[in-house]
């Protein structure tokens, strides 16, 4: 394929290419100014940013592992909801948070397995398969949930000693509950696995050009099964975050669209873990800002509009700022040998 020089590279397009960095820079500057003027509010807002972004980054990591291996997963929302519910039940009946988190992860993997079965084995349309999962999770959790179940508590912040005493970054980064730490670690792990290991190379090849992988002896469907199931476990962790770390109890439809925002985050991050992390932090920040604005309550804007902030940001960022990003070439296509 011959590529011809485009007529003119406009500076606007160049600007868009670095939009992620520019936004990140603005946020850093804003936080420093904020910290100097009101340390307490700024600290709590940034901490809240991190908390809000945790389910998004986990969801996005789930989505990008699936898509990198060639499977579209719009069922993240359902996977999160289902595992949030199972994690909650495990906590109610065992009272052991470690078991509860493990149960949430397993539940996510189970739903991931179902998605893989539909997408890889049955070669179903993957959008339909994802929709099935979303509806199924909503229905099952709604049906089996009974009000009045109580738990003995939720995951508590782990203070990382002297690091947590640093101004601003200490309380924000080094005094968090375990799943938040795990989400951050997973970003690095995912990046390393995808780009520096055999598994990652094969995963990406399967998502880009499955027959190329097949002809050198890689089992395409097996790679897809395993990756989609692991990704399900990550979505399960996101579900566990909601019931076991953030809220401490279950509500119907409590994922509240986070699974879909996670997909937007994945695309905004151009299918890379660090890109997705940046995007998740941006949305987390918007959510934190929204809460803060409602808290202050002095601004004459109806709270419904302030509540829209993260979602409006999603639309603006996706429609305007991302520019052209390229999904894995074979995403959504079942692999068929003739």
């Amino acid at each position: 394929m011959s590529t011809l020089a485009t007529t003119s590279k406009s500076s606007w397009r160049e600007l868009l290419r670095y939009s992620g960095w520019i936004i990140a820079g603005l946020v850093v500057v804003a936080s420093i100014i904020g910290y100097l003027s009101n340390a307490q509010v700024t600290t709590s807002m940034l901490a809240s940013t991190l908390r809000q972004s945790t389910p998004l980054i986990l969801g996005a990591l789930c989505g990008l592992l699936c898509e990198r291996t060639g499977v579209v997963n719009i069922g993240i929302e359902g996977q999160m909801l289902f595992s949030a519910f199972i994690g909650f039940l495990a906590n109610v009946y065992t009272g052991n948070l470690v078991i509860a988190v493990a149960a949430a992860i397993l539940a996510g993997m189970l739903v991931g397995g179902l998605h893989a079965f539909m997408a890889v084995y049955l070669k179903m349309d993957q959008i339909i398969a994802g929709t099935v999962i979303n509806i199924l999770a909503l229905g099952l959790t709604g049906f089996f949930y009974t009000a009045g179940l109580t738990t003995e508590g939720k995951l508590q912040p782990i203070n990382l000693g002297p690091l947590a005493d640093l101004p601003l970054v200490g309380p924000v980064l080094f005094n968090n509950p375990p799943i938040t730490y795990m989400a951050i670690i997973l970003v690095f792990v995912m990046h390393y696995v995808l780009f520096f290991t055999q598994w990652g190379l094969r995963t990406r090849a399967v998502g880009e050009h499955p027959s190329a992988a097949d002809t050198v002896g890689i089992n395409v469907n097996r790679m897809r099964y395993i990756n989609v199931i692991i990704a399900g476990g990550i979505a399960g962790l996101a579900g566990g975050f909601l019931t076991l770390e953030a809220v401490g109890s279950f509500e119907r439809a409590m994922t509240n669209g986070r699974g879909f925002v996670a997909l937007a985050v994945m695309i905004f991050g151009k299918w890379t873990p660090f890109g997705a992390w940046g995007a998740a932090l941006l949305f987390g920040f918007a959510s934190a800002l929204q809460t803060q604005l409602q808290f202050i309550g002095t601004i004459e804007i109806p709270h419904q509009f302030i509540g829209m902030l993260p979602y409006v940001l999603t639309i603006v960022v996706l429609a305007g700022l991302v520019g052209r990003s390229r999904p894995p070439a074979a995403v959504g296509k079942p692999y068929e040998t003739d």
Binding site: L201, R204, A205, E208, H209, S211, A212, T215, V216, R326, A329
Partner: peptide, 8 residues
């Protein structure tokens, strides 16, 4: 048809 991954 070459069995090469274009982006790699």
């Amino acid at each position: 048809h070459f069995q090469l991954v274009p982006v790699m």
